[in-house]
Design a protein around this nucleic acid. Structure first.
Lengths: 229, 229
DNA sequence: GTCTATAACCGGATAGAC
DNA sequence: GTCTATCCGGTTATAGAC
């Protein structure tokens, strides 16, 4: 059925859009309720009111649903940081907020984030944070960290400043990895780690900026450069 | 059939032992040939000349085969290090050999190691290096690293020396993670990273041992201590 | 009681009709 | 774009052989 002659503002694919969103929403709800493994594609399709085949029409695999989740989280984190970082000047404060808010955003999905990172460790998987498919999200995330630094009143040598966004991204990944394994009440241990490690990171940046540290700093940065290809 | 009256040295379960080994050997061969996913339990059972049910009798799941592989690699690494480290005194030399030989041992399995670490990243999985099931292997691996340090002529503050084996174990895991993602010819990039990072690690140990570095060192070590629970 | 073999079950994924 | 009908492979149940 074409749209010919209809004065509606919404173009043709509006219904498809809705179906797709409904499937994702349903999937995330089920993931939160039962976890990833326990949620079958059949159950998602059923609750979303579509057939199994239809669900696969929109999401090529169960992993694609995870990828969609991933993108959504990043968008929310971005919006949150854009709204709140403006009033913070010290690097320590800005970093702490960025890392904490990231973890708080994904907290409802703690149970199923485990599986997310299962695929994430597989070089073949598109969910892998180093993969080509993840590149856009990775670059956006790194760009956000660059703004966290640039917007602060911290000073540092140029070479360090250039490498820092990528280093902080790896640091963020490490925090998430710890968070995944953290079963403490209210994720207390992870939050302690965030606070302690942010302090340390800022201290190390200061240390690495000292003139007589230049040789070691160069050594580290050259190594990092090689690792990044 | 009982063994009564038989003068053999080998007790009853000799045949079972053989079957079990044959299944593992067959599985590893197929993993190398086709990768993990493409190797079906049915194919393993068939080539090993046993029924599917029998394969499951010895290995409760496909993952258990991976776990058996894991244990075997560690034993070989241990034997290799025991045989060769005796003649090396500098920490740099000893560390480099330890890390390189570890990677060379698993090189034939590079293609399937990816999947190994997929499960390894899941906190629930027994393959996870932090899991209770992995504890024995983890502790043995850490013990090996402790000997790598102790057998060297390097000197360092006591607090650092106490924490170092665990830190080096994490470092080793990082190298393996990089190795997994490395598709360069002959794993050239990983080997460069080993050399470069071993140099850096030794340099940082020296730096961290300087008297005026004590506050920062303490800060790092306290954080590490918290992370380890 | 130690092992082996066969026949399911279950859920992710695909093919092809409408 | 949506469905129904299958496929495929990890896993389990179960019946029996030695």
């Amino acid at each position: 059925m074409t749209n010919a002659g209809q004065p509606e503002a919404t173009p043709a694919p509006a219904k498809a859009q809705l179906t797709q969103t409904r499937i994702l929403e349903t999937a995330l709800a089920l993931f939160r309720e039962r976890g990833f493994e326990a949620t079958t594609m059949r159950a998602i399709a059923e609750r979303a009111g579509v057939s199994l085949g239809n669900a696969y029409y929109y999401y090529g695999s169960k992993d694609h649903l995870v990828q969609a989740f991933y993108g959504r989280v990043h968008e929310e984190h971005l919006a949150l940081c854009d709204a709140r970082l403006g009033s913070m000047r010290s690097l320590k404060e800005r970093l702490r907020f960025t890392m904490r808010s990231r973890l708080e955003l994904i907290e409802p999905y703690h149970g199923f984030a485990a599986v997310l990172f299962r695929s994430a460790a597989d070089p073949q998987s598109p969910l892998n944070p180093f993969s080509a498919e993840s590149r856009p999200v990775r670059e956006q995330a790194t760009a956000l960290l660059a703004r966290v630094i640039a917007g602060s009143n911290a000073h540092m040598p140029e070479d360090l400043g250039a490498a820092l966004p990528n280093l902080l991204w790896v640091y963020q990944m490490g925090l998430v990895l710890f968070w995944i394994h953290d079963t403490s009440q209210g994720r207390r241990r992870t939050m302690q780690l965030v606070d302690g490690s942010v302090d340390l990171v800022v201290k190390l940046i200061g240390l690495a900026s000292l003139p007589f540290m230049r040789p070691v700093r160069r050594m580290v940065l050259r190594l990092v450069e090689n690792v990044e290809r």
